[in-house]
Simulated scan of single mutants.
Amino acid sequence: MTTGNPLPEINKKRLWLSTGVTVPVAGLLTLIVIYKAGEYGMALFVLIPLFLGVSSAVIYGRKQPISRRQAVGAGLISLGVYAAALLVFAIEGIICVTMAAPIVVPITCIGSIIGHGILNAKNDRAAWVILLLIGSIPATAFMENSPPPLHTVVTSVEINASREEVWKQVVEFSELKEPDEFIFRIGIAYPIHAKIDRKGVGAVRHCNFTTGSFVEPITVWDEPGLLKFDVLEQPAPLRELSFWNINAPHLHDYFISKEGQFKLTALPNGHTLLEGTTWYYHDIRPAFYWRLWSDYIIHKIHGRVLEHIKTNAEHAE
């Protein structure tokens, strides 16, 4: 053993062997899940990270004793190389890899601990466990086809202006200033301005974002209390940070805004309570995790628009 080197040379070779075997298999499974099954779900965000951890730990510790910490380290190295490969081969961009990290990192660690436990059991089941994981990943992906539920996000702001004045700013609004929020500056799509072709039900409103336009046919025109609309077309939810032109499938038809509305309520103090509501669904799992991101981003988009309307209404002549 070389002085100051925490691992013997044979350990290093086996460590990189574990990565060299595990990552290509995980990459192939990822391509099957995304491009054949067309799913961003439990197979991609749970089973593949679990496989990365289990396989790396088992191969690394197959013919030598390793600690649990070393097993976890092997899993995280494989996960890091796997993530880098997604970026290099333009399968994903930096934003989506970063958003997935809080769920895939712990799952990879759990997989590594499971792999370490299998080694310590001193039986011959390790290969079977890995094969079972490999087989279950595409099988799970092809079975993940349940319709996603519709979710609602409501954001509100109190405005020191009458409903009539606020209504004018709601129907269409002037160009917004450049955002200060970090999520918008790194590529999440944000609204720029809104235009409408005429008044009343059947009018079409265009809410223009940095990635394109939301086409919104008006379904309720109750001036000055309620403006409700469907979403006929929508642009990509973000521009990925990448050295390449990323056009991942999840940028199309996996996050869908269905309806929206602005509700204006007169308050006793003469102010107006303005509520912005979006009804949406996303076909990405585990839903509880990705809903946290979706709700947060929609609230930030709502907030950007509502604050702009508030400023314009309160300073209208």
Rank of each mutant, 00 (worst) to 15 (best):
T3R: 06
P6H: 01
K12Y: 00
K13C: 01
L17I: 10
T19S: 14
P24I: 10
P24R: 09
A26N: 13
G27Q: 07
L31P: 00
L31M: 09
V33W: 00
Y35P: 02
A37Y: 03
A43S: 01
A43D: 05
A43P: 01
A43G: 09
V46C: 05
L50Y: 06
F51I: 01
A57N: 07
P65H: 15
P65R: 12
R68P: 13
A74D: 09
V81N: 08
L87I: 11
E92Y: 13
T98H: 09
T98N: 05
M99P: 00
I103D: 02
T108L: 01
I110A: 03
G111P: 06
S112H: 00
A121T: 07
W128Y: 15
V129C: 15
L133S: 10
G135K: 03
S136P: 14
P138Y: 07
A141K: 03
A141R: 07
S146C: 03
P148F: 04
P148D: 04
P148V: 02
L150A: 11
V157W: 10
E164G: 06
W167L: 10
K168L: 12
E175T: 11
E178R: 06
I188S: 09
P191G: 14
P191F: 02
D197R: 12
K199S: 14
V201F: 06
V201T: 15
V201E: 13
V204C: 12
G212C: 11
P217L: 14
G225A: 14
G225L: 13
P235A: 09
A236N: 11
L238M: 14
W244P: 14
N245F: 15
I246Y: 07
N247K: 13
N247W: 10
H250Q: 10
H250P: 10
H252Y: 02
D253K: 08
K258E: 04
K258H: 15
L264T: 03
L267C: 01
P268T: 01
L273K: 05
L274A: 06
Y280I: 04
Y280T: 11
D283M: 08
D283R: 04
I284Q: 02
R285I: 05
A287G: 06
R291I: 09
R291Y: 13
L292E: 06
W293F: 14
H302G: 04
G303P: 03
G303Y: 06
N312R: 05
E314V: 08
E314A: 05
A316W: 06
E317S: 09
